[in-house]
Nucleic acid binder design. Sequence first.
RNA 1: GGCGACAUAGCCAAGUGGUAAGGCAGAGGACUGCAAAUCCUCCAUUCCCCGGUUCAAAUCCGGGUGUCGCCUCCA
Length: 485
Amino acid sequence: MELYNTLTRRKETFSPREPGKVSMYVCGPTTYNYIHLGNARPLIFFDTVRRYFAYRGYLVDYVQNFTDIDDKIINRAGEEGEDPLALAQKYINEYFRDAGALNVRRADTHPRVSGHMPEIIEMIDTLIKNGNAYVVEGDVYFEVRSFSAYGRLSGRSLDDLRAGARVEVDSRKRDPLDFALWKAAKPGEPSWESSWGPGRPGWHIECSAMSLKYLGEGFDIHGGGFDLIFPHHENEIAQSEAATGKPFARYWLHNGFITVNEEKMSKSLGNFFLVRDILARFPPETVRFYLLSTHYRSPLDFDDQKLESAGRGLERVKTSIRLLAEALARPEDGRASVECKDLPPVLDELRDSFEKAMDDDFNTALAIAVLFDLAREVNTCVQRLGVAPAPADREVLLKAEVLFKAFNEVLGIFKVDRNGKMSLDGMPSPGLDLADGLLELIIGLRQEARSRKDWAVADRIREGLKGLGIIIEDTPQGVRWKKQG
RNA sequence: GGCGACAUAGCCAAGUGGUAAGGCAGAGGACUGCAAAUCCUCCAUUCCCCGGUUCAAAUCCGGGUGUCGCCUCCA
């Protein structure tokens, strides 16, 4: 596998710290609001990375933090008259709801800042002892000059950074770029005791302390959005390596931004879309599919038309999976003629192509193209079968179904139930409830009308059901219905 | 001002030296009572512009134009 490492600015062959195992840490959200689409991109992308490593047979240890102590949380809690930690907890719960809807699996560990004060304080202590940090009036700052590799990740020298610094210079800092490891408590703020006084951690130290605690020195992959490269990840490297004297993380992966009208979407610009608002208008699988249809390092523009277009494309994939399931559900006929005997080698090629795409820096856009190729091959086969498959064809179809499931296991577009069945949401379920029963009854009546060539009644029923969101399709293999996508 | 990324059909989007994937939209055909779905065919002599390297460039180099991002909390 090749992956693009921000640290070296080129693709590198992935080789894990320990054979067969992958350790990854991804910066999670600051929980003071519901997550927006921009937050969803790294979630979905790194979830896909994790799934692909698992598909490739690696044992993955995935850690994603929550920043539950921070200025924004404290401010928000102040506005709402709520306890900051309770507010953070609320949005952590909501986070899981949104992420779950997008079929993002939980990380193996979701550490929080508030639960790791001893580790954070100990790390700061080490940095002070090592001469990399200094205390000023209860604040503790990291001294960037003390770390010679500072700027390596973002590709900038300290001089470049100073020249462009827009930060107000704090005269207590030895260098304008020195950053806070510990902030002295202000009245009314949540705080923790430390040997340099009560306070709370700065933003960057948490990720160093928690990633090192759970994954150890030199873990494999550290990920996040492009905007975290500087200063957040730069600072993480400085702190961690200054404290441990060992390399911090081995591969740095950063996803590109989501833009709206070609402009970066962010909470500070106020042009963001909450995941839950989008999910009220589009199916979650469409959202996930859309986000994966562009390479993760490219910017991705969001608007309704683009999502609708993606949804129509995804509909073809769903249709294909449905056609396949229906063909398999039909009774075999005993005929010996085999219609799809050319398909198996094609399926093998498709699997190769899919893996090749994912091996090349997680090229999900190409992988999705392979998904479409699979759909077309399956449709062609199913169409040739006519009403019932021969036993040999049945085996071929089963193999194709396995491939659909394998692709979906990686891309995570469709949710999968306990029996391993993909949920396409419009698919008629085997268990009939009243509505389904009535629907079957009406469709049966329409079929009788059709057999009498009573087209007026048949069309009226079809139009009427369409108005209720049920699409009727008359196919050579019989009637099919689905809920409107 | 400093650093960096990107520019491929009406739209979205792969493709880093060997002669333009895939999707949406569109056109024609097969199938169909019709519609839908599905399948087949067509749809970029050309990859922002100008130079250069090469037998060969969307892909490499130089210059230009444009868009975006980072340098401040931000996924």
